[in-house]
Simulated scan of single mutants.
Amino acid sequence: MQMKIVKWALISGMMIMMGSCANKKENKVYPAVHGLIQRVAPSMAKHVIVDSIPPENGKDVFEIYRQGKKIVFAGSSPVAAASAFNWYLKYFCHCHAGRAGHNLQLPEKLPEVKEKIRKVSPYRYRYWLNYCTFNYTMSFWTWEEWEKELDWMAMNGINLALVIIGTEKTWQKTLQHFNVSEKEILDFIPGPAYQAWWLMENLEGWGGPVSQAFIERQAALASKILERMREYGMQPLFQGFYGMVPYALKEKYPAHRILDAGEWCAYRRPAFLMPDDSLFDEMAKVFYEEQRKLYGEASFFGGDPFHEGGRAEAVDLTLCGKRIQQAMQQSHPGSTWVLQGWLGNPSPKLLAGLDPEKTLVLDLFGETLADWNKYQPSWKLSEGYH
């Protein structure tokens, strides 16, 4: 009798361990997606399984199918699995999870999946945001808004997104290496509503000066955003160093080629450090090192020299482009320079100095002007959307 009890205890213990291991294994697959489902549709969470599957020819893929009484959202990445969840909400539950609001009146009994659904993305890049729309919408967002945005991005397949929050701290740490005072640094950084136009070299300091507390708050928020993005498998597009510097630097380094870039819509532009000047490589190296220390690794970097004008008449744009990209590659080998296709930007002369395999042009005006045509046939149209 005692032996039977011992055997039963051993068998029961093994079954509990097996069940525990199975649950643990189930929850290990894309934990960020489990969290997303819990936030968006908590009543559904106990009825679904999240699983991983291989990509198809290098492209993201998701599947939706039934396993026993549960629904499986399987994806080749966390974003793909989140997209499967969104597909099920839309086309089976007739619900909507949007940026402006939700309609999530789920049926009491979740609809069955009678046949497996399989969708393969045709796109390598699914990009989100540009500089201007960031400030039009997100200037004063907190983590509460960003968490919802990141969930929406995952559910809609985004795998590459602009992250310029926290660049204030990168610039502060960089300029501290170059004899720029704290007051001059704070005068250079604009207020939160003007970050986009600052980083596009249109203005400096407008809406400022900012406080140190603001810089620290932005850096902390950036770190939180990046942590969630990486959990989802999204890649960040960071600000790159392309020669924009504080106007005050022109007076501190008179022996170096720092140009007055002129005005943009009556705003004085930041100065422009020529990429063939020795100071450029030194600053670029420090900028990328400080950025990496603060926010980790990245493979995509933005930055548009002479965006919407500027005094570029005496500048060899082809050489500038080549040197900017070289400095980027020295700090981040294999990285991609992402440029905004907008009206006359980027200049064909600038593009002539770039390696097309390490450059991505986002056509932001393609619905009106198919500008990418002018880069053919030497430039290829990439499979992607933004």
Rank of each mutant, 00 (worst) to 15 (best):
E144D: 12
H94M: 12
R230W: 06
P377E: 11
Q376D: 03
F301Y: 05
A196H: 11
A100S: 15
Y91S: 12
F140A: 12
E63F: 01
A255T: 14
R230D: 07
A161I: 01
Y247Q: 10
S347N: 12
P107W: 03
A370V: 10
N156R: 06
V163T: 04
G68H: 01
P246D: 03
K252T: 04
W264R: 05
P275V: 00
Q291V: 04
L249E: 01
G233V: 02
K183Q: 14
D51C: 01
P254R: 03
C95N: 00
V48I: 01
K183W: 08
F134V: 05
R292S: 10
W197G: 05
M3S: 13
I5C: 05
K116A: 07
L279S: 02
E290A: 11
L36W: 08
S347M: 00
I64R: 00
K59P: 01
L160I: 05
H94R: 11
M200Y: 00
W197Y: 15
E63R: 12
W197T: 12
A81M: 05
K28G: 14
M234P: 00
G243T: 04
I11R: 14
M283K: 03
F62L: 07
Q67G: 00
F92K: 09
Q376F: 11
F241V: 05
I189L: 10
M15N: 10
W152G: 00
F85V: 02
L162M: 10
I185Y: 11
A255E: 15
F287M: 02
I258E: 03
F214R: 11
F85Y: 02
E108D: 12
Y247S: 10
E216M: 13
L162W: 09
K374M: 15
S278Y: 08
I64Q: 01
E26K: 15
G98R: 06
L360V: 09
S331N: 01
P55S: 02
N202W: 11
A213H: 04
L150T: 04
Q330K: 15
G35Q: 09
G233H: 08
T133W: 14
V72Y: 00
S299G: 15
L360H: 06
P190Q: 11
M18F: 12
K7Q: 13
M244I: 12
L249F: 07
A352Q: 11
E308A: 15
W8C: 10
M44S: 09
V338M: 08
D316Y: 00
L343G: 09
T167I: 07
T336C: 11
P107H: 05
E227R: 08
W128L: 09
V61I: 03
Y288P: 04
V79Q: 13
Q105G: 11
E263C: 04
S121F: 14
